[in-house]
């Protein structure tokens, strides 16, 4: 299974782990956008999740509590965003950017004194003999529980949006808040719920960075993962399965370019560094060309809702 000196099995196993943070954040953001709200503050929520998750996990010695702490911090940040955009009807783009700025600053304040500590280990799920199956074992059955949780969430969100009444209402709110309001749905309450969920997901994704991927706390640890998550949502045309594909594609290319270097490839490094972004753009163009309106974007995405009656 070697191609150009790169082992495919380990590459796949690595990219599945590497893409968990952006997958979690992107799934959450997708639900938020489905409800018609655009929250550009994913990076800020992720990094608050990263620092809080780290502090909680180290203090309690329990990584599970750490992830919950991360989710709570992300949701708290999202609550701030909901207050601004849903109650005070502020512009969503500007509020999201402010959230990121605030989160980067606050996380760095909170994290002072937490540098250079090793967090408790999040172990692999013991799947016994499954992990020993050649090829499939290392790729699918030797990961930590967050990997599996993120995959389960892909299915759960897909099912929720497609097959449940609550999911239908959520989508209706995103498509036309006026119509949904006329039908008697609480537009703001539903959107606030979605925003909080999105924040919790981003916070957990951030906690995965500081507890598993890197594992440590340093300022700016998420280094732009939140922006990539936002990109993936659009890339995926607001479909859960495509979010998964997008996260894997992006994670895969990022990992692959380093693997290519390590394997002594002759492609210049600067082009390899650009490649994940350029390939994402190209795929995006391919997906969007020759299609109807806006590739499945919720019609009322980013619009402020005010019930005038």
């Amino acid at each position: 299974m070697d191609i150009g000196g790169i082992n495919l099995v380990t590459l796949l196993a690595t990219l599945i782990v590497a893409s968990v943070p952006i997958l979690m954040a992107a799934l959450g953001e997708m639900v938020v956008e489905k409800s018609g709200t655009l929250n550009l503050g994913v990076e800020g929520m992720m990094i608050m999740g990263a620092v809080t998750g780290f502090v909680v996990a180290v203090t309690t010695g329990n990584p599970v509590l750490g992830f919950l702490g991360g989710a709570a911090a992300g949701a708290a940040m999202a609550g701030l965003f909901a207050l601004l955009t849903q109650v005070l009807l502020a512009n969503q783009v500007a509020s999201g950017l402010a959230l990121t700025l605030f989160g980067l600053g606050l996380s760095s304040l909170m994290g002072q004194g937490w540098n250079g500590i090793r967090p408790p280990l999040t172990g692999d799920v013991p799947l016994g003999p499954l992990a020993d199956i050649p090829v499939l074992g290392p790729i699918l059955f030797s990961h930590d529980w967050m990997v599996y949780l993120s995959l389960i969430l892909v299915v759960a969100i897909w099912w929720f949006l497609r097959a449940t009444r609550a999911g239908l209402i959520l989508r209706a709110v995103g498509e036309s808040h006026e119509a949904a309001h006329a039908l008697g749905y609480k537009v703001r309450r539903i959107r606030t719920g979605a925003i909080l969920f999105g924040g919790a997901m981003a916070g957990m994704g951030g906690a995965y960075v500081s507890l598993v991927r890197v594992p440590q706390w340093t300022d700016g640890i998420t280094s732009g993962a939140g922006w990539i998550a936002l990109a993936i949502v659009v890339f995926a045309s607001w479909k859960p399965w495509r979010v998964l594909m997008g996260a894997w594609l992006f994670g895969g290319i990022s990992v692959l370019q380093l693997n290519l270097q390590a394997a002594g490839s002759r492609i210049p490094v600067e082009y390899l560094t650009m490649s994940p972004y350029i390939i994402t753009i190209l795929v995006l163009v391919l997906i969007s060309s020759g299609r109807g309106r806006a590739m499945g974007a919720p019609a009322d995405l980013g619009k402020t809702f005010h019930a005038s009656h």
Binding site: T222, S223, V255
Partner: peptide
């Protein structure tokens, strides 16, 4: 492996991973 950064924990982790896989 050139990381093109002085400090990017996630990318550095990936770079180390890529080397280990080699």
């Amino acid at each position: 492996v050139w990381a093109y950064t002085w400090f990017d924990p996630a990318k550095e982790a990936d770079a180390a991973r890529a080397l280990i896989e080699q």
